[in-house]
Design a binder for these strands. Sequence first.
RNA 1: GGAGAGGUGGCCGAGUGGUUUAAGGCGCAGCACUGGAAAUGCUGUAUAGGGGCAACUUUAUCGAGGGUUCGAAUCCCUCUCUCUCCGCCA
Length: 425
Amino acid sequence: MLDQKLIRENPTFVENNLSLRGKVYDITSLHKLTLERKEIDMEISSLQSESKKLSKIIGQEIRNSNNPNNQELDVLKEKGNKFRTKISIFEEKKRILDKKLQDEISKLPNFPSKEAPIGQNENNNIQIKEWGNPLNKDNLKTHWEIGENLNLFDSIKSTKIAKSRFITLTGNGAKLERALINFMLDIHSNNGYLELMPPALVSSESLQGSGQLPKFSNESFKCTNDDLWLSPTAEVPLTAFHKNEIIDSKALPLKYVAYSPCFRREAGSYGRDTKGLIRLHQFNKVELYWFCDPNKSLEAHKAITSDAESILKKLNLPYRLVDICTGDLGFSSSRTFDLEVWLPSSKCYREISSCSNCLDFQARRSSIRTKIDKKTSYIHTLNGSGLAIGRTMAAILENGQQTDGSVKIPDALVPYFGSSLIKTN
RNA sequence: GGAGAGGUGGCCGAGUGGUUUAAGGCGCAGCACUGGAAAUGCUGUAUAGGGGCAACUUUAUCGAGGGUUCGAAUCCCUCUCUCUCCGCCA
């Protein structure tokens, strides 16, 4: 969430920054609301101040006089009554105004970083580096063909259970998924991250806190009888983990790694990636998350990205690092580095991790602060997938495929999977 | 699902209508004492908004929202969360 004071005092600055995202933001009416709100606030404050003084006088009178029902008191009480009436009129106005303000402000995305490449959409993203040797041969199988041949998952049967875009992992597929989760959790928790396993259901307030609500209610599954949603990413429960806290600055940065299932409606993606493990309503993910000193989030962003990268390197999967342009940035992010893994069957890179610096955007929405030199300030939050499990499996299957139809398991994963090869039975 | 008890500052905890301007403690910071430290003593220490160059000042906030009252942490209503017992249950 953006700072209301900043909107009030410097609307042009806010508009200019937001418009870096590639579309025009006009906050004139919002700006007016903030001014109105301040005016009403001042009015209420001065009325309250006078009413308070009057109440004190009445209290003293009652204590000092032996007749608590005299007429002078009635006159004073009547005066107090008038204050109350006036104040309640203004408070009603303030309530309505506050709600409007809150609604409007929480729909505004974060400012893009000055460092982020300016651009309209994903075509303007900038490749920073490539790692590994992308397998570039013809007649390679897709991961869903490989999966079918080796009986690693079954999407047809999954429509019986739920509907399309769900998968049931079977045999070695299920085992490989489990191996990947454990592998990633071990690497990260040995690297200074505290492992968490959060609830998969989250409240509306939590989704609001990390930025998925109010704008993107269409992208998550909602429970009908409770104010709970299926979490679209562990970023949501992890942000909410420290909601309404003032964290000791000596404890920063707090680094968490969490495995969680993720649920997304994928509204508007009909027809895209309908096969395989790339785009599912439910997928597993190991997420990295930092709560950090607001002065140190730039270095932290590099660190969290390289921690995510380390997994791809250990699995020996070719990837590239992409700097997301302003027009393609997520709602809460000011700067995002995507890691894209090489999928040889389609001869392209696909996103497997998104590492974002949200600055104080989520911290302000969730009220997470720290004290620096006796001053209270919002902390910065960063998140990054480390990594998306399903897409990692897809990459392993495609990059590790052998001419005889078997799949070679990356060396680092063998101790977890228990075998160096997946063969047909 | 039924019955009951609760939610007070960074933490613990007192507080049943008017010097509560939220006691006391812990923690933290500064100072004193010390060769240095511990212990001790003194002082300070919530958050958000407004005004002011500043010292400072003012308003709100005791789970959330309404209400009663001149005045509410305290009384009433609604919601919410936590805990205990019973029931059900992996």
